[in-house]
Design a protein around this nucleic acid. Structure first.
Lengths: 192, 192
DNA sequence: GTCTATACTTTGATAGAC
DNA sequence: GTCTATCAAAGTATAGAC
C-alpha cells in the first residue's frame, strides 16, 4: 500500500515527534500537529484511525529505534572513547537546538506512566531495547554480563536525568558531568 | 492573614502536587484538582488569582524544597552510607507507591522547559538548590569543591533519569543500578 | 480517498449570587 | 469571602461533501 510511503503521513509523524518531544503528550494538540505539518485534520484519522494514542504509539517506537542508533558510536574496540563521544554529542545537540530536543520519549514516558498502560508499555519496550543494546556493547568490550547491564542501565539513566536538568537549567553541564562519572566507571571496569 | 493557614488552600496544594507529579502539568486539570481536593472551583482562583501558573509555581517551590530534605540522610561523617541509603530509600518509596510518585517536579520540568519560561525558571531554581546542597555535603565530607559539584550533579541526574526508567519499566532496578555507580564514584573519590 | 465542517467534551478563567 | 453558573476557546473525534 502507498500509505506507508505517503509524504503526508511522514510529515504528521515527524511533526508529532518534534512536538511530543518538546511539549509532552497532553501538551500537544492534534490540530497543532496537522497545522504545523501542513496536513488536513482529517488525514490524521485517515492514517491513524486510533487517533492520538495510535499516533503516539508509533512515534514512541520509531523515535525510540532511531535514537538507539546514536549508541552506535560506542564501539567494542574502544568503548570508553565511544561513550565519551556519546555524551559529548548529546551535549552538543542539546545546545545547538536551544535545549528543546533531548530524549525523544522522556516527556511522553513521564506523562503516561500512571495514566495509559498501553503507551507506558511502548515506552518500556524502547527503554528495554536501549538497555539491552548498551549492555551487549559493554559485554563485547569485555565486561561481565551482569556488570555490563548495571553500567548500561546507569549510563542511560544518567543521560536521561541529565537531559531533565539541562533543559531546565539551559546548560550542558549536567550532561557533561554525568558523562564524566559514567565514563570513569566503565574505564575502571575495563582496567580491572 | 488566615489564607496561608487555610486547610482548603492546603488541600488544593497537596492534591495539585500529587496530580502534577503523576500526570504532568497539562495532563492535570484545575477542575480535577479542586474535585479531588473537595474544594469549590472558585476557591482555587480565590487563593491563586494567577490561576494554573501561579499554583504550579508555588507547588514547584514547596515540593522542591521538601524533596531537598530527603538528602539530609547523607551526613558528612559517612557520605557513602548516606548516599547508598538515599538511593535505596528512593527505590523503596517508588515500589511502595506503585511507581506513581518519583520526582515531584520532573514531569512539570520537561513539559514547561520549552513552553513557559517563568515555570522553567522555577524548576531551574529548585534543581540549582539541590545541586548546591548536595555539593556542599560532599565538600564537607572532604571532597574538593569542583569535584564535589560534578558528583552532586551526577548523583541528582542519575536518580532523576532512573526515575524515568523505573516508572516506565515498573521496576526499581534503574534506581538501584544508578545508585551503585554513583556510590562507587563517591567512595573512590574519598579513598583517593 | 481527501479534506472540510461540525459535534461534543473539557479546558482555564470569570461574573455574580449569596 | 464562599461558592455556583457560565463563558469563550481548545481538545479529540466524526460525519459527510466532493
Amino acid at each position: 500500500m502507498a500509505a506507508s510511503k505517503s509524504p503526508t503521513r511522514r510529515r504528521i509523524l515527524d511533526t508529532g515527534a518534534r512536538l511530543f518531544r518538546r511539549n509532552g503528550y497532553t501538551g500537544t494538540g492534534l490540530k497543532q500537529i496537522t497545522g504545523e505539518a501542513g496536513a488536513p485534520f482529517g488525514s490524521l484519522y485517515h492514517f491513524f484511525p486510533g487517533g492520538k494514542r495510535e499516533l503516539a504509539a508509533e512515534i514512541i517506537r520509531t523515535e525510540g529505534a532511531g535514537y538507539a542508533r546514536t549508541f552506535d558510536v560506542v564501539r567494542a574496540e574502544d568503548a570508553v572513547a565511544g561513550l565519551r563521544a556519546w555524551f559529548a554529542g548529546a551535549a552538543e545537540v542539546l545546545e545547538a537546538g536551544d535545549y528543546a530536543d533531548a530524549c525523544p520519549i522522556a516527556a511522553i514516558a513521564l506523562e503516561v506512566a500512571s495514566t495509559d498502560d498501553d503507551l507506558r508499555q511502548a515506552t518500556a519496550e524502547v527503554f528495554t531495547d536501549w538497555i539491552e543494546q548498551a549492555a551487549a556493547r559493554f559485554t563485547e568490550a569485555g565486561i561481565a554480563p551482569a556488570r555490563a547491564r548495571t553500567l548500561a542501565v546507569s549510563a542511560i539513566a544518567s543521560l536521561e536525568g541529565a537531559f531533565v536538568l539541562a533543559r531546565a537549567l539551559r546548560s550542558p553541564e549536567p550532561v557533561l558531568s554525568a558523562g564524566e562519572i559514567v565514563v570513569a566507571a566503565v574505564e575502571r571496569e575495563l582496567a580491572s
